[in-house]
Write a protein that binds this DNA or RNA. Structure first.
Length: 634
RNA sequence: GCCGAUGUAGCUCAAUGGUAGAGCAAUUGAUUUGUAAUCAAUAGGUUGGGGGUUCGAUUCCCUUCAUCGGCUCCA
């Protein structure tokens, strides 16, 4: 019976009998076949040598597709485990998935893997790759699987097998002397992995739970060619140059100091200027969007934190209490209790709602020492916090406005790519199912209405309400949360918040917490990394540097500076006794957007030159022409 | 907090069981310069902190702090 295979482009191929996916690929092109890592038959990912026995849709995956890459890296993890088992047979294997960039495998081993160990493993992987060992699939029963891994003494595998529901197929993959429990699919043979590099080793808890034993994880990456490996290494180098910690030091934006304390930021003048610009823009936008500004204290009495519940569910993240005249005070880890206290300072009519209260509120949280990371993760930070208090029938409108507002602001800073998540009710939660449904639905409906793509994080909401998070990626692709929009069913209750409705009865309002930038610190870091330090012109602390060639032009340079300042540009003069090449180099390294080199000619003619960072000389021009050129970018 | 690595001048890095050196930056002087580094001199360090071993520690050991990469959590 002939078989018809439909390819992704819609074209059909007919074969007289069953044929393997590999053979189909080979017929399309031998190069495709050699690049193929797996097949997708009727939307199911399978090994490339799988036989196709009926009419099917077929996709051939190579390293170029997302699924192909994942399989490739997953197979690389198996290869690494094989090498480790050969080198240290006593080591137990656990799990080893593909990740966004590469793969890892967790091993149970007493000692950590040293750098020399990693090199040894890498060498062994290359040898195994050269042997082109086929990955072969076996399906077996639960009992058989338990027996096999039990005989090998692989306890972790048995735990995993035992958790597989009865009736589900269990499969293993074998390459050479190595067998691993695995759903698959896998690449056809180890020779497909051409370039491999083990990047680092670290500790990781079994199942990510710190109550469990700490395993030893090895991270690696692999590619079908050395060229791709080289490119990846170059990418890592480039990323290191964009690291906000390096830029922060080189551009004199911020620093940390041992004596001040870990995770506590010192904003230097240039960094402070950028922050000021961000915050002014933020303030303007909030006033334009119907928010009212408030200011609240940095500490509050323990009573407040009891009312809010933070002492119950958040104390481990709070700085220790301080005693003032026999009263306990806490540094604030969040702003909400203060905002709610403002709300509660008077009665509210439904006519006043929604109330939108915003504050750049500085909070302090105790973060475990191992998690601090530059400005991304600190102990004292400023949230661009706001609380929206509204009636149930205002919710949808508010949520939708919020998402638009958030995305508009982020885009203004140059961001274009976002990861959006909708998190739903966790196991332990306050609030009724109706409340959760209503809130979750309005979040979802708003995202849908705005045509935004998002991922669900089932059970990932806070215990007090569902939320939308928007994340932005840093220089090496790690996603950092910025915007968060969270419903809160907990605090309105605890603070006994009310408004008087049209029925003259007291009602409980809906409360939404939200931060758009998230924290100014983290946002600043992501912004720096995203732009590699070359922030949009409106955010640069010095927008132009005037470089007189000799002392004779300093007077003229000052005139120009005055005129530029009147145009609202931040402009400095480098009047040092240095050669022009030196001053240019320094201004370039400081990433100053515009330079104007002023010599005898310009001073006499009353004109100026312009040079753009990264572009070079733009030539001589009249002052007005230069202003126009600069303002094009603002 | 846990696993591992690291910590030498402002920055990037070197060196040794006999108490440290380079480049850049800084300071001073000379030079007045035309689109990415002018020349010279000077100064700068309890080698993260504390303790131990040793005749002697920056080097070896212990401890502590911080940083980096992960785990976990989250703005």
């Amino acid at each position: 019976m002939p078989i018809v295979i439909t390819l992704p482009d819609g074209s059909k191929k007919e074969y007289p009998a069953a044929i393997s996916a590999y053979d189909v690929a080979h017929e399309i092109s031998p190069r495709l076949a050699s690049a193929a890592v797996a097949a997708e038959i009727n939307s199911k990912l399978v090994d490339i040598n799988t036989m196709i026995t009926e009419d099917s849709d077929l996709v051939i995956h190579t390293f170029k597709t997302d699924a192909g890459r994942e399989i490739y890296w997953h197979s690389s993890a198996h290869l690494m485990a094989q090498a480790v088992k050969q080198l240290w047979p006593e080591v137990q294997v656990t799990i080893g998935p593909a990740i966004e960039q590469g793969f890892y495998y967790d091993f149970d081993r007493e000692e950590a893997f040293s750098d020399e160990d990693l090199l040894k493993i890498e060498e062994r992987m290359k040898e195994l790759s050269a042997q082109k060992l086929p990955y072969s699939r076996q399906e077996l029963s639960k009992e058989e699987a338990i027996k096999i891994f039990g005989d090998m003494g692989e306890h972790y595998k048995i735990v995993i097998i035992e958790e597989i529901p009865d009736g589900d197929p269990i499969s293993t993959y074998t390459q050479g002397d190595f067998i691993d429990l695995c759903r698959g699919p896998h690449i056809p043979h180890t020779g497909v992995i051409k370039a491999v590099k083990l990047l680092r080793s670290s500790g990781a808890y079994w199942r990510g739970d710190e109550r469990n034993k700490m395993l030893k994880r090895i991270y690696g990456i692999s590619f079908p060619s050395n060229k791709e490996m080289r490119q990846y290494m170059e990418f890592l180098e480039e990323a290191a140059k964009r690291d906000h910690r390096k830029l922060g030091r080189d551009l004199e934006l911020f620093s940390f100091d041992d004596e001040v304390g870990p995770g506590l930021v010192l904003w230097h003048p240039k960094g402070a200027m950028i922050r000021h610009l961000i915050e002014s823009y933020w303030t303007d936008m909030h006033l334009q969007n119907g928010y009212e500004l408030v200011y609240t204290p940095h500490v509050g009495r323990s009573k407040l934190w009891e009312t809010s519940g933070h002492l119950g569910f958040y104390e481990e993240n709070m700085y220790a209490k301080m005693d003032v005249e026999g009263q306990d005070y806490y540094l604030k880890p969040m702003n909400c209790p203060f905002h709610l206290s403002i709300y509660n300072a008077k009665h509210h009519s439904y006519r006043e709602l929604p109330v939108r209260m915003a504050e750049l509120g500085t909070v302090y949280r105790y973060e475990r020492s191992g998690v601090l990371h530059g400005l991304m993760r600190v102990r004292g930070f400023t949230q661009d916090d706001a609380h929206i208090i509204c009636t149930p029938d205002q919710v949808s409108d508010e949520v939708e406005k919020l998402i638009v507002f958030a995305l508009d602001m982020l885009k203004h800073f140059g961001f274009e790519e976002f990861l959006i998540y909708l998190s739903t009710k966790p196991e332990a939660a306050v609030g009724s199912d109706e409340e959760w449904d209503m809130a979750t639905q309005s979040l979802r409906a708003s995202l849908n209405k705005l045509g935004l793509e998002f991922d669900m994080d089932e059970g990932g909401g806070a215990f007090y309400g569902p939320k939308i998070d928007i994340k932005i990626k840093d220089a090496i692709g790690r996603a950092w949360q910025c915007t968060t929009i969270q419903f809160d069913f907990n605090e309105p209750e605890r603070f006994n918040m009310e408004y008087i409705g049209a029925d003259n009865q007291a009602h409980r309002p809906i409360m939404i917490h939200r931060a758009i930038l998230g924290s100014v610190e983290r946002f600043f870091a992501t912004l720096l990394e995203y732009h590699g330090g070359n922030l949009p012109l409106w955010l640069m602390p010095t927008q132009m540097m005037i470089l007189p060639i000799t002392d004779a032009q300093i007077e003229y340079a000052k005139e120009i500076q005055e005129r530029l300042r009147k145009e609202g540009l931040r402009c400095e003069i480098d009047a040092r006794n240095e050669k022009i090449g030196y001053k240019i180099r320094e201004a370039e390294l400081q990433k100053i957007p515009f330079m104007s080199i002023i010599g005898k000619k310009e001073a006499e003619e009353g004109r100026i030159t312009l040079r753009r960072h990264g572009e070079g000389d733009l030539g001589v021009m009249d002052f007005d022409e230069a202003i126009q050129r600069i303002k094009e970018e603002l």
